[in-house]
Design a protein around this nucleic acid. Structure first.
Lengths: 105, 105
DNA sequence: CGCGGTCATGGCAATATGGCCATGAGTGCA
DNA sequence: TGCACTCATGGCCATATTGCCATGACCGCG
């Protein structure tokens, strides 16, 4: 494969940055199954509502979730269809890290 | 799937953070094909050698690359076997984002 | 209309990140 | 030994990120 342009790496990094926070990973995990309103997400995440809104905005800007307004509430859902692969990758790395550390011991 | 512990999300986020920088994505791309020394990586990346070393340390701590000393040089290689899936995920998101924006227009 | 519930955004402070410079350690050659 | 080369690390500054608080917009119900 040919090397990519700085713009391509920047575009990829923008999405990766959106994935690089535990609270956002939790939100994505919750939204994998079903649409959820911000109020419920706030309660589960255990941080301020404004903080959750900002995290959701970051995920939305990255194209990973989308919001649907219904009355006073906004229901978010996952839009990226590939996150299973991403999480699978993370788990693989974690397993490999664990194995190599065990090997050292 | 059951919800995960904060520690699990933190562990995942640590790896995601390592992937969340364009220069590190470039380095991973270069190391996908063949082992490369820091000096060559520095020249290609176009940033200071110390900066490259720090990026490589971050990737190494995340378990994504490993270094092998040979004489005065250190050759790095990719150790994570799943990054293709990760990059594929990023590309999918980018394509989906592009498509949805085109749909708006 | 008034009011409580829901959510997004601006402001701010604390912390983390990223870049370069300077430096030090280790290697190999003359 | 002396020197050039390679790489890692500490220091430092500029910038970005993250959290909460405060606030404002919007909705729906009395």
């Amino acid at each position: 494969m040919r090397r990519k342009t700085p713009q391509q790496y920047e575009a990829r990094a923008r999405i990766a940055r959106a994935l690089a926070h535990p609270t956002r990973l939790l939100l994505l995990d919750l939204l994998k199954e079903r649409e959820t309103c911000v109020c419920d997400l706030t309660e589960i995440a255990g941080v301020d509502q404004s903080t959750v809104s900002k995290h959701l905005a970051i995920l939305r800007d990255a194209g990973l979730v989308a919001g649907r307004k219904e009355g006073a509430m906004t229901f978010y859902r996952q839009t990226a269809s590939c996150l299973e692969g991403f999480f699978g990758c993370l788990e693989t790395v974690l397993r490999e890290n664990l194995a190599s550390r065990s090997a050292v011991i």
